[in-house]
Design a protein around this nucleic acid. Structure first.
Length: 487
RNA sequence: GGGCCAUUAGCUCAGGCGGCAGAGCACCUGACUUUUAAUCAGGGUGUCCCAGGUUCGAAUCCUGGAUGGCUCACCA
């Protein structure tokens, strides 16, 4: 067997393993009986001082002093210092201890004490090698900085950059909080298919996969919306799904091809109710998990306190660009305005689409403190109900925090005839080459034709919310294994 | 896809004008029984991202490519 060494350090570590095996020591051991975590030893020091304690972890630092030595071992809770003396463990074991490398995982047992300098430490009476590290860890002081390596080898990032662990602990807490919040309010959590015959519920290009036995192509879901609404038709009056969705799009600091959403549907509710739900959910999550709603993001203050600002799309566009689309009579006039503002147009855009483009291009990134932008043109909202006072608009809102879209919600369109017309409009765009336009979903229309109760629906982009709550500049910082090009 | 930038030791990074490949940590050898970025003495461990080109001579200059970051476009 030939082993390829990546460095001289690996060569030495392989040699040490051979030596250990020769001496009958198992370099990859059995479970160790742990009585306390590193953190428990610190917090319960008063009770533990002078008592025997067992803990286990990865060696992160090591300092030898002749016939005694110190090391820090790290577990999921933090670090604890250990102290080994030849007097206590004998010459053989002390030699073994000295031969351990940074990165090795060991179990230690000994008395807890405080050193001269006041650090809580375990005075080792016995220890065991649990797992030998063949590769050296990144540097102890600077950690691992190379972003590519951090994402590709997240385990190293987690070992040497403690703040990374904190981000993912917050992520876990946020998801748990959302689940508990909705469950307590009587929502039922469900799981719907990830592989779809028709990719619907959002404007996006899907990934395609193949089922061999059925010999059919399937789409990875781009939203959970249409299945959840089928469940509402089926009588699930309060329902939600937390899960991964997939969009075959570019990658950026705000986009990862697979990301996590929570979609919520509630009967006899409308988009106003969904606004309240959104702001309450996110603000209370911040209060509960971070202890405050006044946070900062990328060096700038960000106030999540209630209530959040509400503004109509037309208002914000007028405010920021000076263009009042309510005064624009038709599609042709809207296209003229677009040209004047330097937008590229094809010539068949509808007024609503241009209004929306104005918003996306000129307004979105200026919405810092949480803002609900409401009342979207019907052309860009094929699943939302028309507004009662103006059928060219829908009862829909999107939520923006720190310039990022974090939620999208509406009073659901439950009229199967209007829904069919909307799908037909989308199919036209699709036929004209728009790969993101919705597909016709007859099965969904059939469900609507059985009658769906008035319903409010909401989708939240979990990853972006977590970016905001953890002050992370890139979505890759809140996804453990972001999509990367293979090497 | 366009623009800008980066890629040098296991890690973090230096390397004006082209002239023997560098530092800190880590590692190896030795000393040291309460240290803590331990200390002291000694040791440089390398496909300078890859492939061409210019040149007596390329980490350095030129061309092409790879990967990543930022950004614009695309896209919620």
């Amino acid at each position: 067997m030939s082993i390829e060494y990546h460095s001289d350090q690996e060569f030495y570590r392989h040699k040490k393993i051979e030596e250990l095996i020769k001496q009958g020591v198992q370099p990859y051991g059995d479970k160790y009986k742990v009585t306390h975590s590193s953190q428990e030893i610190s917090t319960e020091f008063a009770a533990l001082e002078g008592k025997q304690t067992s803990t286990a972890g990865r060696i992160m630092t090591k300092r030898g002093h002749g016939k005694a030595g110190f090391a820090h071992i790290q577990d999921s809770q933090g670090r604890i210092q250990v102290y080994a003396r030849q007097d206590n463990i004998g010459e053989n074991d002390y030699k073994f201890f000295q031969s351990l490398d940074i990165g090795d995982i060991i179990g230690v047992t000994g008395e807890v004490f405080k050193t001269r300098t006041g650090e809580i430490t375990i005075n080792i009476s016995s220890f065991r090698l649990l797992s030998k590290a063949l590769r050296p860890l990144p540097e102890k002081w600077h950690g691992l900085k190379d972003t590519e390596l951090r994402y590709r080898q997240r385990y190293l990032d987690l070992i040497v950059n403690p703040e990374v662990r904190k981000v993912f602990i917050i992520r876990s807490k946020v998801i748990q909080y959302i689940r508990e919040y909705l469950t307590k309010k009587g929502f039922l959590e469900v799981e719907t298919p990830v592989m779809h015959n028709i990719a619907g519920g959002a404007t996006a290009r899907p990934f395609i996969t193949h089922h061999n036995a059925l010999d059919i192509d399937l789409y990875m879901r781009i939203a959970t919306e249409l299945h959840l609404k089928r469940l509402v038709v089926g009588g699930m009056e309060k329902v939600f799904e937390l899960g991964r969705i997939f969009r075959n799009e570019g990658i950026s600091t705000n986009h990862n091809p697979e990301f996590t959403t929570v979609e919520v549907y509630q009967t006899n509710a409308d988009y106003e109710d969904m606004m309240k739900l959104t702001e309450e959910l996110i603000a209370s999550a911040a209060q509960e998990i971070l202890g405050t709603t006044k946070i900062s993001y990328q060096g700038r203050k960000l106030d999540l306190s209630l209530p959040w600002r509400r503004k109509s799309l037309l208002e914000i566009v007028k405010e920021i660009t000076g263009v009042d689309f309510s005064n624009i009579a038709n599609d042709a006039e809207a296209r003229k305005i677009a040209l004047q503002h330097g937008l590229e147009i094809e010539g068949n855009e509808k007024k609503g689409e241009i209004t929306f483009t104005f918003f996306e291009k000129y307004c979105e990134d200026k919405l810092w403190d949480p803002t609900f932008i409401k009342d979207y043109p019907v052309e860009v909202s094929p699943l939302a109900r028309r507004s009662r006072d103006n059928p060219q608009f829908t009862d829909r809102f999107e939520t923006f925090i720190a310039g990022k879209e974090v939620a999208n919600a509406f009073t659901e369109l439950i009229d199967p005839l209007d829904q069919r017309e909307r799908f037909e409009q989308q199919v036209k765009k699709r036929t004209a080459g728009d790969e993101e336009a919705h597909m016709m979903d007859e099965d969904f229309l059939t469900a609507l034709e059985y009658g769906m109760p008035p319903t409010g629906g909401l989708g939240i982009g979990i990853d972006r919310v977590i970016m905001v709550l953890t002050d992370s500049p890139s979505i890759r910082d809140v996804i453990l294994f972001p999509t990367m090009r293979p090497l």
